[in-house]
Nucleic acid binder design. Sequence first.
DNA 1: ACGGTCGATGTCAGCCGCTGACATCGGCGG
DNA 2: CCGCCGATGTCAGCGGCTGACATCGACCGT
Lengths: 187, 187
Amino acid sequence: MGRWQPGAQGRLQQAAMELITERGYDRVTVAEIAERAGLTERTFFRHFADKREALFAGQDQFGESILAGLAAAPPDVSPLEAAVRGVEAAGTWLDDERRPGARARQAVIDAHPELQERELIKLARVSAAMAAALRDRGVDEGEAVLAADAGMAVFRLAFTRWVADDGEHDLPWHVRSALEVLRAVVG
Amino acid sequence: MGRWQPGAQGRLQQAAMELITERGYDRVTVAEIAERAGLTERTFFRHFADKREALFAGQDQFGESILAGLAAAPPDVSPLEAAVRGVEAAGTWLDDERRPGARARQAVIDAHPELQERELIKLARVSAAMAAALRDRGVDEGEAVLAADAGMAVFRLAFTRWVADDGEHDLPWHVRSALEVLRAVVG
DNA sequence: ACGGTCGATGTCAGCCGCTGACATCGGCGG
DNA sequence: CCGCCGATGTCAGCGGCTGACATCGACCGT
């Protein structure tokens, strides 16, 4: 056995989630999170760039699965369809097993503006990456940006409904459903 | 003449903008901003909730002009058209005279992630307010959200192009232009 | 004119997020 | 067995932000 318990980062994430759900984000200090994880405040900041980030680790995989899904779309589909294939792929990553965790996490985020800010910029960066990928496929700049933003808007509505949903439909289903709503609104 | 020079808030905003463009956001302290404005750090925080907010005061008017524009749209236009009328109205508020200021401000924001976060949540709140206004008009929940988000996406693209534009077109023109792009992408 | 209230500001102490610099110490390769 | 490496601890310190209390000119009513 090593000098340290393994899984420091995971323990920090879990401790953060627990304490924040118990007391609320701003009534928990980083030192307390670290203490519950058996570490020091300084070590917390070696694993996460700031306090908020402890709740957003793993989001990278989410963004990558979207980009992979977009890249896997045939070259002849429309830009919007390609973007939707991306968020649909993320929908298979967020399967039913992850729904309770996603729900709890979203409740925490919805209750704290500073966490909403962080989530928004993460989504905006994914959207920008989608737009860049579409441009690389030869899509015009403006169309790429709007297709990516529209795809992300579809995802957000789908995700909201999936989180509120009691297991009747999976996330890809909600994505397709939201896409139909978008078509009705714009078309 | 009063005990204090008038326009404290405006002086703080100007001082913040100057110092940040000179040195960059994170190399300026609130105490320095306050000092240049002839005030103390504590007073800064009586005018602004936090350091970032000094660069976002006046945004309320922007959001209100959007909502006013939306409310002024005839009841028989489509939800998306109503949302676009809103952002178009904001486009008349951001006239040619304000373009240099908007450009400088946007350059500062683009250079600092924490400011981007703040901008994103402000736009998200305006979008949520637009969606609520559309719901009040009798629009279905999902359609309202997507129409508002789509309208905001159109605005963001239009604003980006307007800022980069050398005065050839005004913002409402860019809004209509971006809307056509959206229709091409989704339709 | 006077006294009292009000409101914007100043002052001060203090918490917390976050960082740089340096020390510690077990694991592991040579 | 030695020495390097890497995760962690320790410590000092800055800057954002807040609560509590003091200050003092303006304004209002008498």
